[in-house]
């Protein structure tokens, strides 16, 4: 049962209605300390992550970049409390989340994290509004009234889906569906948004729309974002890029907050690193 519905969650970025205040940039909201994740493959043990540590500041847009199998998605799952590390810990918004019970991890996900995945995974029989409202309905909050309704309206504006509320997912394009998924992830104003290859299933132009949406939520609303991608163009939207390889953070590239997201500087840096 929900102990604290998202609407009343005392997170500083959660004032209802109007756009939230811009948060401080220096405070750490997410920290990974010596994370190791080991899987068994038959009789063999494989380290998907080895002793990874990182910090993400409030309002920061961080990209985890690396080739397939580098461990970036595993890292994202651990950061969002979807999985547990073999060793090490994750601290999210002051709370150690890596060893929570299923019940507490569920609460944490409901209150502090939002996820966007490569496959949009909308509920096909629910319309756009209902899909976006899911975090509220899951928490037992009526999404048709009050603050919840205002927030839904707000995120639908952000992802430019006003007027499509009654459409079912099969009546939307792939890009629109992913925008619904993005709105769903943002609607509860999570402390951190975790996006796993959100443009992986989209064409170039549509992918750009999603990245723009992500960037706007970060830049205008101070949403902290961790994006997993193997695409330099997507990573170029981030303030900072962590290059993941063989279960470790190989490099860190500081891009800084920029209004335009030209990928060339990043690509050059990556080239210099031999990636």
């Amino acid at each position: 049962m929900p102990t604290q519905p998202p609407v009343s969650s005392p997170s500083e970025a959660r004032s209802p209605g109007a756009a939230p205040a811009r948060p401080e940039r220096d405070g750490t909201i997410l920290e990974a300390r010596n994370l190791t994740k080991r899987y068994r493959l038959g009789k063999r043990e494989v380290d998907a992550l080895q002793d990874v540590s990182l910090k993400v500041r409030r309002g920061e847009f961080v990209a985890l970049m690396g080739p397939s199998g580098s461990g970036k998605s595993t890292l994202l799952h651990l950061l969002g409390g979807l999985d547990r590390p073999t060793s090490g810990e994750v601290v999210l918004d002051g709370e150690v989340v890596s060893h929570l019970s299923d019940r507490d991890a569920t609460r944490l996900r409901r209150e502090k994290t939002g996820f966007v995945f490569q496959f949009f995974n909308l509920i096909p029989l629910l319309d756009v509004y209902e899909n976006v409202a899911l975090p509220f309905t899951i928490a037992g909050i009526d999404p048709r009234h009050g603050e919840a309704a205002a927030r839904i309206k707000d995120v639908l504006e952000l992802v430019d889906l006003v007027g499509r509320e009654r459409n079912r997912p099969d009546q939307l394009s792939a890009g629109e569906q992913q925008r619904v998924a993005l709105a769903r992830a943002l609607v509860a104003q999570p402390a951190i948004l975790l996006a796993d290859e959100p443009t992986g299933n989209l064409d170039y132009a549509t992918g750009g729309e999603i990245l723009d949406g992500l960037w706007r939520s970060c830049d205008e609303r101070g949403q902290t974002i961790v994006l997993v991608t193997h695409d330099a163009r997507a990573a170029a939207y981030a303030d900072r890029v962590l290059v993941v390889g063989d279960g470790k953070i190989r490099d860190e590239i500081e891009l800084g907050r920029r209004a335009e997201h030209d990928a060339r500087p990043l690509i050059m840096r990556l080239a210099l690193l031999g990636l």
């Binding site: 998202p6 969002g80 569920t106 996900r109 209150e111 995945f117 899951i138």
Partner: peptide, 16 residues
């Protein structure tokens, strides 16, 4: 399965 995974990620408890 994946849909349920997303619901769980969005905060739906295993009991729900």
């Amino acid at each position: 399965a994946r849909e349920i995974g997303v619901l769980r990620a969005a905060g739906m408890s295993s009991r729900q």
